[in-house]
């Protein structure tokens, strides 16, 4: 009985890791170099910037929290933030479509859009 359970456990682990790999692969395949940086606060688009210009500005949420967005060398990142966990600062600079920087405490999402993407937004 224990052997059967162990076998089932191993099948479970393998399928989970395969699923992770499949999701990751599918997402990678769908990615293209982006054109625009879209800033969303609480699910609403608050600003759109071109990814090919250099830019440094503070994003201020409704309750006064600040994330400093930097766009340089075709990549966007958060330089500093006043959230408790600073996870948004640790996330990698983004430049491919579908990539995001997300600050959960501030309900802030920085997203990269491709050529046609912004039409759907603006």
């Amino acid at each position: 009985m224990d052997k059967i359970r162990l076998r089932n456990d191993i099948i479970l682990f393998a399928s989970l890791l395969l699923a992770a790999l499949a999701v990751w692969g599918a997402l990678k395949l769908l990615q293209k170099p982006g054109k625009y940086v879209v800033v969303e606060i609480e699910g609403k688009v608050s600003a759109v910037y071109a990814l090919d210009g250099d830019l440094k500005l503070d994003i201020v949420t409704a309750d006064g929290h600040v994330n400093k967005l930097v766009i340089e060398n075709g990549k966007a990142r958060i330089e500093s933030a006043d959230c408790p966990d600073k996870l948004c600062v640790k996330q990698h600079a983004i430049s491919m479509t579908g990539e995001t920087i997300i600050c959960l405490p501030h309900k802030l999402v920085i997203r990269i859009e491709g050529e046609g993407g912004v039409d759907a937004v603006t």
């Binding site: 990751w24 969303e40 990539e99």
Partner: peptide, 16 residues
């Protein structure tokens, strides 16, 4: 909560 489906990009990392 964030009405952003892009969060799914974290799924592989969180599964592993």
């Amino acid at each position: 909560l964030l009405s952003t489906k892009e969060i799914a990009y974290w799924l592989p990392i969180l599964i592993v």
